[in-house]
Amino acid sequence: VLTEYARVIKKFIRDENLKEFDKTAIAHLLEIAAIFAGQKEKLTTRFSKIADLAREANFWANDDGFDIVTAAHVEKGYNNAINRHGMLESKISEMYDDGTYLLDTEGERVGQINGLAVYSADFYSFGRPTRITSTVSLGSGNIINVEREAGMSGRHYNKGVLIISGYFKETFGQDIPLAFNANLVFEQSYGTVDGDSASCAEIFALLSTLSGLPIKQSLAVTGSLNQKGDVQPIGGVNEKIEGFFELCKTKGLNGNQGVVIPIQNVKELMLKEKIVNAVAEKKFHIYSISRLEDGIEILTGVKAGKKTVDGYEKDTVFDLVERKLKDMYAKSRAIKDEDEKPKKKKTKAK
C-alpha cells in the first residue's frame, strides 16, 4: 500500500512539473497522510490535501534555493498550513492561557476530572481538555445528563450516560436500591456534545464524588465504557494527547502530568517528537487501561477493590462507594418512614 501511495504522489509531482522530491519528503507526506487518516496503519484518501502540501513544499524549496524538495520543506509547508487554518485553536488556547477556561493541571479535587475533546477545523483536527464535574444527592438512582436536559447533547453521548447508569445498577445495586441522584456536567461547554469517549471520565468523577476520594488533576482521561466495566477504544487519540500536553507545557511540566487512554488505542499513537521525548524523559506519562478498575486506581492512588462474601475489600474505592450508598439508602428510608407515619389530628378546644 505504501508503495502504491508513493507512486500516486510521484505521478502527481510529474504532472504538476514540481521539483524532485527525495525519499525523506515522500516518507513525510506518507506520515502526514496517516495523521489525516487518524490511524497509524491507514492513509487518507483525501488526495487533494496531500497535493496541496506537495505544492506548498515545492514553493518553500524554491524559496530556500533548493533543487530537491526534502522532509524539512514538507514539514514547513504543513506547519504553515496549520497556522493559516488555526484561528479556532489559537482562540481556544488563549482562553485557557488567560484563565477564561478553568482547568487544573496539578493538585487534587473530589468529583472533578479532566476529559479530552476533539475540535474539527476545516484543514485539521485538534484536541483540548475540558473540565467534567459530578454532584450527588438523595434520590432514586437517576443519573442526570445536564447536556441532554439543556438540549446540548447528541445520541451517542446520551447512550454513554445510560451505560454508566447500567454499570452502577449491576455493580452496586444488587443488594440495595440506589438511593441517589447524580448530575454530570461538561463545564463551560456551550456547543453540542456528542460521542461516548467521555464515559470513562464521567464514571471516574462519579466514583470520586461517592467515595470522597480526590482525583489527580495532573491527569486527563479519554475512553468509552461498556456496562461490564470494560474500556473501549475511541477516536482522535493523538489529537487529545497533544492537546493536553500543550496545555501542560504552557503551564509548566512537573513530571506528574499525563493522560489515561484505552489500551486498544496504543497501536494508533503517532505523537509529535517533543511528546515522545517528554515521555522518554518521564516529564509526561501515557497510561493505557483495559478495565475501569485500572483507571480509578491510577487517578486516586487507591485500590479499586474486589468483591467478597462480606462486600468489597475494606477501604478500597468500591468499599467507600458502597458504604456511601448504604448510608444514603438508610437516610432515604428514614425520611420515607417519617413521611408515612400517621399524623395526629389536632383537636380544637371547646
Score class of each variant (00 low, 15 high):
Tyr287Thr: 14
Gly111Val: 04
Glu20Ser: 11
Gly301Leu: 04
Ala25Thr: 15
Thr209Ile: 10
Gly236Asn: 13
Ile296Arg: 13
Lys228Phe: 08
Asp64Phe: 08
Glu242Ile: 00
Ala198Asp: 05
Asp339Lys: 12
Ala201Trp: 00
Thr308Tyr: 14
Ile275Pro: 07
Asn17Ile: 03
Gly258Asn: 08
Ile113Gln: 08
Gly258His: 04
Leu88Cys: 03
Ile68Gly: 06
Ala57Cys: 09
Ile263Pro: 00
Cys248Arg: 04
Glu56Leu: 10
Asn277Phe: 00
Phe168Met: 12
Arg109Cys: 05
Ser134Arg: 08
Tyr329Glu: 00
Ile164Gly: 00
Tyr287Leu: 11
Glu239Phe: 01
Ala121Gln: 07
Glu106Ser: 15
Asn254His: 13
Ala179Thr: 02
Glu31Ile: 00
Gly229Met: 04
Val309His: 06
Leu269Cys: 12
Met152Gly: 07
Leu299Cys: 14
Phe284Val: 01
Ala34Ile: 06
Ala182Ser: 10
Ser140Asp: 02
Lys249Ser: 08
Tyr96His: 07
Arg333Met: 15
Ser140Phe: 00
Phe36Trp: 15
Glu313Val: 09
Phe123Gln: 07
Tyr329Gln: 01
Lys345Asn: 12
Thr70Trp: 14
Ser120His: 12
Gly236Trp: 03
Gly141Tyr: 01
Lys283Cys: 10
Ala81Leu: 14
Ser120Ala: 14
Lys306Asp: 08
Ser93Tyr: 04
Gly38Tyr: 09
Gly311Ala: 06
Asn62Gln: 11
Lys348Met: 06
Ala304Ser: 15
Cys200Asp: 05
Lys11Ala: 12
Glu246His: 12
Ala220Asn: 06
Glu202Tyr: 02
Ser90Arg: 15
Val309Asp: 11
Glu106Leu: 02
Gly243Trp: 00
Leu271Ser: 04
Asp122Pro: 13
Val266Asn: 11
Ile261Gly: 06
Glu16Asn: 14
His285Ile: 12
Tyr5Gly: 05
Ile35Tyr: 10
Phe123Lys: 15
Ser189Ile: 02
Asp310Phe: 12
Lys272Asn: 03
Ile50Arg: 10
Leu325Ala: 06
Asn80His: 14
Phe21Val: 10
Asn181Arg: 04
Lys249Leu: 08
Thr222Gln: 11
Ala71Val: 02
Gly223Ala: 04
Lys40Trp: 01
Met95Ser: 11
Val146Ala: 04
Asp194Arg: 06
Gly141Asp: 00
Ile9Asp: 06
Val302Gln: 00
Phe12Gln: 10
Val118Lys: 00
Gln232Thr: 07
Gly235Leu: 02
Arg7Trp: 07
Thr100Asp: 08
Ile163Ser: 07
Ile113His: 08
Leu103Phe: 06
Gly107Ala: 14
Lys283Tyr: 07
Asp315Arg: 05
Glu16Ala: 15
Ser120Val: 05
Leu325Tyr: 01
Phe172Ser: 04
Ile275Val: 13
Ala51Val: 09
Gly166Gln: 01
Val193Pro: 06
Leu225Asp: 05
Tyr167Arg: 05
Arg7Met: 13
Gly111Asp: 04
Ile286Thr: 11
Asp196Tyr: 07
Ile215Lys: 08
Ser48Arg: 08
Leu219Val: 01
Gly127Glu: 00
Pro262Trp: 03
Val136Trp: 04
Phe180Met: 07
Glu268Asp: 13
Asn158Met: 13
Asn265Ser: 09
Glu31Asn: 13
Gly115Met: 03
Thr70Met: 14
Asn265Gly: 15
Leu253His: 08
Thr300Glu: 13
Ser199Tyr: 05
Ala121Cys: 11
Lys331Pro: 01
Ile215Asp: 09
Arg323Thr: 04
Ala205Gln: 07
